[in-house]
Design a protein around this nucleic acid. Sequence first.
DNA 1: ATGTTC
Length: 390
Amino acid sequence: MGTTTPFQELQHAAQVRVLAGERVWLEDAALEQLRITARLPHIRAAVGLPDLHPGRGYPVGAAFFSVNHFYPALVGGDIGCGMGLWRTDLRAHAASASKLEKQLGNIDGPLPDALMADAQRQLDGIAVAQLPASREMLAASIGTIGGGNHFAELQVVDEVYDADADIDRKRVHLLVHSGSRGLGGAILREHVERFGHAGLTAGSGDARVYLAQHDAALDFACLNRIWIARRILQAIRAEADLLLDVSHNHVQEAEFGGECGFLHRKGATPSDQGVVMIPGSRGDFSYLVRPVAGRDEALFSLAHGAGRKWSRSDCMGRLAHKYRSDELRRTRFGSTVVCNDKELLYEEAPQAYKDVDSVVAALVDAGLVTLLARLRPILTYKKGGLAACC
DNA sequence: ATGTTC
């Protein structure tokens, strides 16, 4: 006589997979978040990537596939966050971190006037009318890195695994990790105020409005990375070619298990957009990898980085007695960390992140990627660079 | 994540 039938249970049963080898650090809290999120109505499949770690309500390093319905809250606030990689014309053997740091100065604020006019022109392509953000707000934030795990990093090639890889050992590379800044946050805030975490019905007017805003945030985030790179390149007097730009926070229409639906990526790098970069912490390598085509069991997704091992709030307590802040401004590679925010310096310490080798090895072992090259940081810009003198 | 926020 029970009112809950096994059929209901089956209806909501989603396939849950975790792709992590034995070497990968995995927290129970993250697995629990993955299982709970997979139980949301309309979710058909959930995948935890090896960088899986707890987030605010939903896990980071995960992908979710749903049908007839999608969840903006699952994408989170930093819609369009991702990685951009450039090959500069700077010669790797001649690169000096201290010189680059001085040339770079402070790149936290709005773009310098000389670049702003061009950036504003590009912002015309972003349909501001439908966004909870003014054109002035977008202009103020374009070309800025932001906080948290965002960074801009100058790297050199440490090792090449595939002779056919399009990678130049002789050149300095620039990796930019940033997103849509205040814009994505405003879109999510407005959405949650109206709909909470219930999500939206596919094809509804409200769904169309969100997706249009989401797409604008993706465009803005990509432009943001481009302008971060441009201001850096101008400062260090270099030219560069864009090698890749890939977002890891978004929702898109996709087909899985013979059904059309929505693929949410929350800190999950697409495996269907060509070569991607999987960075470790500021004190670890970044891996350039080629996704193996035609593998859908990981929901067309890969790890987006090493993934956190410690929560931000634990870092100061765990590290302050062991390392002074100036010791954290250098890494085991001898690379320089530009960060005048003490809290952030500890929160983003290499010790707070999983070992990127274990994360990438899990992807290789699962047959999801092949390695192309390994890059090593020489300078990581977080925030608070030296103000330009004279 | 955050033109954060206590």
